[in-house]
Design a protein around this nucleic acid. Structure first.
Lengths: 313, 313
DNA sequence: ATCCTTTACGCCCCGCGTAACCATC
DNA sequence: GATGGTTACGCGGGGCGTAAAGGAT
């Protein structure tokens, strides 16, 4: 068995069982791949692919297991290279963080600033997407670390750790009638048209749940994935905004007033996530500790070993 | 990077950093190993071994990580072969069960009988040792499955699942004064010389704890790893025996009388254990289900994924 | 008829073995 | 000097490329 053979297997599946395409993407010849796959199947004593004549038409049950396992072997082998890169002096490498708009815009800048100051040689990528995309990128290896409030804890492949918690805030144009009320209630909120996040973003699930618990149907007139878009439309008078509290800046958002809404919605916990079987370099541990000082290297390692039972805030 | 190179690395460490010995044990040449290790170190950009001149004198910090990771890669690669063997038709393979005397003698025979009837082609090995040995054998790959009451749950590498529970029983020669007492108490037991298991065997820890809780110091005059030895000496009148209840057979042990001791000692839970990262073949799942019917394939798989949090009895 | 895989074949790299050399104890 | 590791070098297997053949749609 050779690692090459496993790469061939996996790439053939990734390319929809098209050996020629796999060959092209690996910059090698198509017969070479066919040959090696044949040899591996012979060594294992099992056909990985179903064939009708000479076409590959599917994956056998055994092949399913073999392919999954092959990916695992390759991931562990890739970790070896990461270990090398981490310890090799001089080499700096790069680090990709997957995250959502809210985190990228309001929580991470300070972290990133500190990180690049400490690691001037590391090329840092911040890749922005939906929470689901963030989880996918972690799983398929596009990004090493993910920061998001939603979706990360839905995957057994990922370890997640609580970073910090935050609440929603209600934002309205200056002079809005809500500002005259004594106390902000969920019922009074439901009287107004609302502007808030898209379904899978930034604690939206908790917003919906709060209304649901009171038997209210909120009138959401606009959803965005982006606090700035929400604030813009609130300022235009389209409705009352519900955003993450850290997205309100009294200076910058001078046309708006914010009302704390901690008592209306469940607290949100923003989580750090990464593949359980990813070997973390020092840069990753460093970034994590800058992001959330309580997540020391020892803490994180204990959680990885401990089977994902994290010490929730 | 080649799998061979990883094997070389690991074998050199296993042989105490002696390349020549490693070469001999792998049936290859010593210069070949030196060369390949050098190439790998170059590829990783990191020295794995410390050298004083030409001798290997130690493992660098990076090398420690590399070696651990190399073993992981090789284990996952070995799993691929297991998958092949499991699905390949005709091939039967072998299965090694590590266990203690008590289990091997009293609990497993029925299981083994059923197993060999169902899998006549599988070569079944039952390897007997101390609970600590059982755990070691599982960790180093000597055995696939382990069955023991002690020690297995001390290791993060192992998944353990409860199989069945049992209690201790007190055995005495016929006509012994204890038989005249109304109720068997821990205090009355402490009056007599005792014969029971060795420190790390068969629930001995719970026996000690029961006396300790009552502030008693039992007079243990003989310890054995083996219920039959204990019974033999009890029959000789050396003392009162405390053994696992299933080790008493009224027919075979006609010279002895047994007193239930369920109320004196904590219940014991015999556990199944195996390496978390071992891919289990159908034969292993079959054996497990014969051993403990509640441990279906689905249950076991859920526990592996679930991070070792087992649904204790 | 076209696309794609397998078979055939030859080159060349590279892993391995032998032999010689060298360092440490 | 004995043990053990590195360097040197040549052989042989095998991985990969090109070319041709053979199924499947």
């Amino acid at each position: 068995m050779k690692l090459q053979q496993l790469r061939y297997l996996v790439e053939v599946e990734n390319r929809g069982l098209n050996v020629s395409e796999a060959a092209a993407s690996l910059f090698t010849s198509q017969p070479g791949i066919s040959k090696q796959i044949g040899l591996l199947e012979e060594e294992l004593g099992v056909k990985v692919f179903e064939r009708s004549g000479k076409r590959l038409t599917g994956v056998t049950p055994a092949g399913r297991q073999v392919l999954d396992q092959a990916r695992r072997v390759l991931r562990e082998a890739a970790n070896l290279l990461r270990i090398g890169a981490d310890f090799a002096e001089g080499s700096q490498g790069q680090l990709t963080i997957a995250t959502t708009h809210t985190q990228a815009r309001y929580a991470l800048p300070e972290v990133v600033r500190n990180f690049v100051a400490r690691h001037p040689g590391v090329r840092l990528h911040v890749q922005q997407g939906s929470p689901i995309q963030v989880a996918d990128w972690l799983i398929n290896g596009t990004a090493e670390l993910g920061v998001a409030t939603e979706a990360l804890d839905q995957h057994a492949e990922l370890v997640t750790l609580p970073c910090y918690q935050w609440s929603h805030a209600v934002v309205v144009p200056k002079g809005h009638p809500l500002l005259l009320r004594e106390a902000l209630t969920i019922t009074s909120l439901a009287e107004f048209p609302l502007v808030t996040y898209d379904a899978t973003f930034t604690g939206r699930s908790r917003i919906d749940r709060a209304f649901e618990r009171h038997g209210l149907t909120p009138n959401v007139v606009l959803t965005a994935i982006d606090s700035d878009v929400i604030k813009t439309y609130v300022e235009l008078g389209l409705g009352v905004g519900i955003i993450a509290e850290m997205a309100y800046d009294p200076m910058r958002d001078a046309g708006l007033a914010a009302l704390p809404a901690r008592h209306l919605f469940e607290v949100n916990i923003t989580r750090l996530g990464f593949r359980r079987d990813l070997w973390l370099r020092r840069v990753e541990y460093d970034f994590v500790e800058l992001l959330a000082p309580q997540l020391t290297r020892g803490m994180v390692e204990a959680t990885i070993r401990g089977g994902g039972v994290d010490p929730s805030l």
